[in-house]
Design a protein around this nucleic acid. Structure first.
Lengths: 220, 220
DNA sequence: GTCTATAAACGGATAGAC
DNA sequence: GTCTATCCGTTTATAGAC
């Protein structure tokens, strides 16, 4: 590390980024190797010097994603905190990571199913391990009575499905900050499962002064 | 209607069903016209007698879906009921319809973005109109104070994202009934947004006898 | 590490016979 | 309505020069 911050990126990483963006926009099968190479500023043939196949490109995008996200949620799941707080933090972390590298995560969520059988097996195992952290938190919360006695399997899929959907509409150029979205979604996840509301004491049917809390409209 | 129940299906409808199944499994761009025709028991050329293009096939799948689902949720949104009850019913209805024609709805959720620009404009407008029913219910609930003062835009996307995710993992051959999933998800949606929990009075930190309420494990 | 050239297969779509 | 045969552009991937 002789240089302070590297702004240039290796051709290899540039190819991964271009591929992730195009796979997200057009789908894995809707994107040609030539397009990826062109977006990275080289020819199709040169791409094959860096990656053995289009499949290998997708595989590495998914690997990048899961290897970065898994340690973070596993640490949260293992923390010495009430389940509701761990759930909030895990959901928040999930959304933040998702937006941080939106193209690659979108590939993880949407295009992972197009991996060839051999690679897909590994992918599914790693995805399951990631999701296991959420199931663990929910199971803890249900066992302790902190959370409602829901089906842990269903509720985990619901929370993850809700959070993952952010990848389809969030635009960093839009009015909503990463933190706003992450905290709102984490809040929805926790409140949907909490046994007791730490209520302010307002009566049912009471009025609210607020019509819509967040500032802007949400892009389609 | 001289015959009681038609078990045979027109070639045209058979093509739509085959296309929806294959688009769902392999993606729009990952499916060839020849595969669709073959799955319906005819040749590629014969398919072009029924549909002008692969795009037209996708367009009609989406049209089928939206034209069946929209009236149902619009009736619910307009009903003279508390917002929380309308939300529960709309979410339940959404999940039931989604599972009822899972292949076509999966195309609606996942493959609609691959429509050619002209057709996509119509598609997006119809999808927005569908989602508008959810926003309307949520806005009513927030205005009346029945629901928490959340951002209606964000919360609608959260609820729909959560419900739509069912399309990715539900298997009718699995242990979970349509009704179980629909009611659990509707419950999560309502509880995430309700201002006051109609609580049974258990104390926070209390114990539950139930580890996991639904019967079986959930498929990956 | 990048290029030009090319292989070999597959894609959507059409022509025209029956 | 379905077929066989075909057009022709595009696809993934490779060979081999620089």
């Amino acid at each position: 590390m002789l240089e302070s911050t590297r702004v240039t990126v290796s051709t290899r990483e540039q190819l991964l980024r271009s591929a992730a963006r195009l796979f997200r926009e057009q789908g894995f099968h809707g994107t040609s190797v030539a397009e990826i190479a062109s977006a990275a500023g080289i020819t199709k043939s040169s791409l094959y010097h860096h990656f053995a196949s289009k499949q290998a490109l997708l595989g590495e995008i998914l690997e990048d994603t899961v290897s970065r996200a898994t340690p973070a949620v596993e640490a949260i799941a293992a923390a010495d905190l009430p389940a509701a707080e761990r759930l909030r933090e895990a959901a928040r972390c999930h959304v933040v990571e998702l937006i941080h590298d939106q193209d690659k995560v979108a590939c993880f969520v949407e295009e992972g199913r197009y991996l060839a059988p051999e690679l897909r097996e590994v992918f599914v195992a790693k995805r399951d391990r990631y999701e296991q952290s959420f199931r663990r938190i929910l199971a803890d919360g249900v066992r302790s009575g902190e959370l409602r006695p829901v089906s842990v399997g269903l509720a985990s899929l619901a929370v993850l499905g809700m959070c993952n959907s952010v990848v389809h509409w969030y635009q960093s150029s839009g009015p909503l900050s990463v933190e706003t979205v992450a905290e709102e979604f984490a809040d929805l996840a926790v409140k949907s499962l909490l046994r007791e509301q730490p209520s302010g004491g307002a009566e049912p049917g009471g009025r609210s002064l607020v019509g819509s809390s967040a500032s802007g409209t949400v892009p389609a």
